[in-house]
Design a protein around this nucleic acid. Structure first.
Lengths: 236, 236
DNA sequence: CGGCCCTTTGACGGACGTCAAATAGCGTGG
DNA sequence: CCACGCTATTTGACGTCCGTCAAAGGGCCG
């Protein structure tokens, strides 16, 4: 796999498109000059504000974050959890998308790139652009599946699916050993991601643990009975 | 406004990007050879099936349609209603997105274009591509707002917002006179779009009509008290 | 040690779902 | 034009899932 000098996490996601370019044409865009700055953000701090119309593109290098939108009176919906290698919204690669807030769950390290430089490279390498379109479609499909889940699935289904989805995502990034993964989410955040309340999430997770489906301790989660969890989640 | 010989509806949405191209460069891509076929589809018929991996791109020329996804056991979520000028998913302009079904609500006329030809033109005119990215972002934002609405808003809010959203969309396409618009939706479809049941939708709409907020008759809807409806909807 | 947030648990309530029956619309065919 | 059958809508009674409120730990950090 291709590594980017400035930021290894960079490769996990977007850069794989770039590596395709290189393989195809024996050339490789140089990302390094794009880098503007690296940051460390403590847990619970905002990474980007809803009204911010930033000229930068941010990528997560370590830690977890949550991307969310909210109603005027403060009710919140988390749209996705971000892990190392995720762009803080691929959608705003080309133009910034206001209205969304991104909050660090654990301490997060991230890097910022200048949007304009990004755009230039995007348009220069059509393969990158196409890969980007793929990513867009995935994100969109995920938002739509979220709407389906919240609108039509029970609380148990939703929580089970969230856990399986995060497990799958962790696995892809090599952040999972055996059936155990880091799991820094507060129940409040699970609630905001599933359209439930924290109290109800606590009850559902309580049932899951009593039924020996999962075990949670020390900010880490083990899937004990994956078969049954999948059945509850109607997973594939 | 630029008109496309083959299909006037074409201009309503995507073609405005093309007209920008022309203004900018004094040139205009010729869409006509792209056209493959025109169709008329009766109400309640599927326009595209969930498993269909079509090589065509479809655009609605008249009538209403609903784009939806479903769980394995048949629970359904309508993601958006399509009106004349809408692409049957802009997301699948470049690559087909399976898993989605699109169903005619009224009789629909539509036209199909060959996807590959489309791609070629897209990449040839970067301005079109950028406009397309905008459309993607809008669609995505709408999917996200839908998740927020279903997860965090009450039934009354959701239904009121759906009505206002459709009114706004109708207005943009000149399909609305005074405060009255065509409204061919069955309550079952409203339910599937808002994550409710048809029975409950009936009750909510009953309240709205009794409170003189709206009037529905003959498949058309009049907004009587827009101020109050907006208040209920928490609209802007 | 003290304060704060998180989690858990229980009691209770409400919003919405389910079921059922009556009515209204609407297209079809005689 | 009416009869028929289907589907949509309306309404009421009732049930349940999930929210709200409250109180009691538990964990974490200053």
């Amino acid at each position: 796999m291709l590594t980017c000098a400035a930021c290894p996490a960079f490769d996990l996601n977007l850069c794989s498109a770039v590596s395709k370019v290189r393989e195809a044409k024996g050339q490789r865009p140089d990302w390094s000059p794009l880098l503007v700055s690296a940051h460390t953000i403590p847990a619970r701090r905002m990474i980007s504000h809803p009204k911010e119309w930033s000229e930068f593109v941010t990528i997560i290098c370590s830690g977890w974050a949550a991307s969310s939108i909210a109603t005027e009176d403060g009710r919140r919906q988390i749209l996705s959890f971000l892990m190392p290698g995720d762009l803080v919204s691929a959608a705003c690669l080309l133009e910034p998308v206001p209205g969304r807030s991104v909050e660090a769950i654990t301490p997060v390290t991230c890097r910022r790139y200048r949007r304009d430089d990004f755009r230039a490279i995007m348009f220069k390498y059509p393969v990158v652009l196409e890969r980007l379109a793929e990513t867009w479609n995935e994100e969109r499909a995920q938002a739509e599946q979220l709407a389906l889940a919240i609108g039509r699935r029970s609380a148990h289904e939703r929580v089970a699916r969230l856990i399986l989805g995060l497990a799958e995502k962790s696995e892809k990034r090599g952040l999972r050993r055996e059936s155990t993964m880091e799991f820094p989410l507060r129940q409040r955040q699970i609630a905001d991601a599933t359209g439930l309340t924290a109290v109800h999430v606590s009850k559902v997770i309580g049932v899951f643990q009593r039924d020996q489906l999962i075990k949670i301790s020390n900010r880490s989660l083990t899937i004990v009975n994956e078969t049954e969890l999948r059945r509850i989640a109607e997973w594939h």
